[in-house]
Design a protein around this nucleic acid. Structure first.
Lengths: 332, 332
DNA sequence: CAGTCTCTTGCAAACGCATGCAGCGAGGGA
DNA sequence: TCCCTCGCTGCATGCGTTTGCAAGAGACTG
């Protein structure tokens, strides 16, 4: 394996008969270079296959052009979608995404974030992950902007991009009630998530407004097997719910599966179902899940804007919760 | 925003009353340091919150500890799964994944790979992406090991991790034939993919062995809408297939949707269906898709091993295709 | 007690680039 | 013709590390 020596700006400079500075300036947008040398340099660079070393540049400028993303799991299809959108949006701005998997549930977030900071990332987005508020503070102290995605902190001032989860829960409740359902159950996600709390709070708002209470409640932790267990528990009684609001689509698929395949119930005949997120597969005919849609694209756009502003030095106000909409399909 | 100055090894050195080298050595496993200074240094480091700058280290050592991953799309759930597994496996080895989205179909791979190399990645894995063999050569020339994931090149010597797609296709054919089906159709993926070619070749092997020919063929390009269109075309005739082998699960879901929901056909009653990959949702009761399983975990493990070996300087032989298995569910 | 060996440790030189500063030349106005 | 201005360019320094080299400090041996 012939280890071809790395070609540096000096090589290009020599070949083009200029100084390293000249080469550097040619590759630095907005620097002062004459067209004539620019041509010579570009030519030499092409011939040699030279490209500036991002890492070296990062050291000087302090800007690495990389954004850290920590995400806990990818089996809920909402997150792959987000990852794809986020990566594309950032690439458009000259950034790239360094991915970190937060071993599920494990509270080594502390450690993971440290690792990320070692890479001198320009920014950090935490998706589906809870961040202790003092850790957030530490990042901010390192000068690294952080934005929480689909989670928020009770602490003021942390940048968080979320949908109007509470409104979403309320919409779900109102829709089920309008359908004439009265025995409404809830399959909750992980209770540590603000997302979960808000969605449930919204549900309760809606029920209360109609003079109803929650008929049943189980927690599925945003995990498929647990959601199925939760469903079994919830329906293992003669007095069953006639509707269920599930905290996200991913769990809702599991719920629907046990309802139809295990318990032989009809959806929405026996029990109406409504999820949250509107992941792509919610639209698939086999499920045709009625759900509360979060606009992933808008969330990503907002995230990127906030992040880049902060990186640019402009302090930015925490964005408002993004609107959600009920998308009505076959299950409610 | 008080920009706290970055804490460097020099700060730690001063506080601990040693030289920068000492500090460096403390953080370099296997370096020669006395326990006494190690303690002093670690203490100072903790007090100051010091962590070595990975980028600076990367410049010196030439090892960035980052692996580039380029992937074309994440809507086929096979790839999120792989991404998660890959990231976890690499994190275990001290590496991290820098993600690059290859705008679908666009042949700017050339450009994307260049961008990746700018980051001085230690290795590159290309998933669901076709790589011109001279580009592969260019990477190799840069000293960056490349491994193709779920794709292979006709060129010899390129590292590629694939399943035994041909055997998979053959298994599918044999199973359908054993079921008594004779009018067997095929919904193909993107024809530029080796994966597609091999799976189809296997299918043909199986048919031929039974004295059958391919009854119908349409191409779905691994995309959901196109797969659905392909299905409509294939069944828009009085003389319909009684079985279909779809080139991957993701498309198979779409195929099944139009079969059942649009055409009112029964699966497997009217038409048997078999997919490829065994993505998680294939097991969901609403689809219960019979499919050929690729072992994503094994593929990832193989990929990581090959990559790390190459990075370590050991030239490694292209691994054998990984075994696939038929997993029988409700659709065939 | 001198000599030798083994550990540690500091020095200084990279790594590949960006950038302030000063110098150079050309063009324009008086 | 002279001088000022302005656009380019090169020099040198610095970013935060690692690492070969040589020297210092003990520890042992003969």
């Amino acid at each position: 394996m012939t280890t071809t020596r790395k070609v540096t700006s000096l090589d290009v400079a020599n070949r083009a008969g200029v100084s390293r500075s000249a080469v550097s300036r040619v590759f630095t947008p907005g620097a002062s270079v004459s067209e004539r040398t620019a041509v010579k340099v570009r030519e030499a660079a092409n011939a040699l296959g030279y490209r500036p070393n991002v890492l070296a540049r990062a050291m000087l400028t302090g800007k690495s052009k990389i954004i850290g993303l920590v995400v806990a799991y990818l089996d809920n299809h909402f997150y792959p979608t987000v990852l794809e959108l986020l990566s594309e949006a950032l690439e458009r701005e000259g950034y790239h995404v360094l991915v970190f998997m937060a071993a599920h549930g494990a509270e080594d977030i502390e450690d993971i974030v440290s690792q990320i900071l070692d890479y001198q990332v320009d920014g950090l987005v935490l998706a589906s992950v809870a961040l202790s508020s003092d850790l957030a503070k530490r990042c901010r102290a390192s000068g690294v902007p952080v934005v929480l995605f689909n989670r928020k902190l009770e602490t003021e001032g942390e940048l968080a991009v979320v949908s109007d989860n509470r409104m979403g829960g309320r919409l779900a409740a109102e829709h089920l009630i309008a359908l004439g359902r009265t025995r409404i159950g809830h399959i909750a996600g992980w209770e540590g998530a603000s997302t979960q709390r808000d969605r449930e709070a919204g549900l309760m708002d809606g029920l209360r407004a109609a003079g109803l209470g929650l008929f049943a409640r189980e927690v599925g932790d945003f995990r498929l097997p647990r959601a199925k267990d939760a469903t079994r528990r919830m329906f293992d009684t003669p007095d069953r719910p006639d509707a269920v609001f599930v905290a996200n689509d991913y769990m809702a698929f599991g719920v629907m599966d046990v309802l139809r395949s295990e318990l032989g119930l009809s959806v929405p005949g026996d029990v109406a179902l409504i999820g949250f997120d509107d992941v792509p597969s919610a639209a698939w005919p086999a499920y045709a899940l009625t759900t509360i849609r979060q606009d992933a694209q808008a969330m990503v756009t907002t995230t990127v804007e906030a992040l880049l502003s902060e990186i640019g030095g402009t302090d930015v106000m925490p964005p408002d919760p993004l609107p959600v909409t009920l998308v009505r399909r076959a299950t409610a």
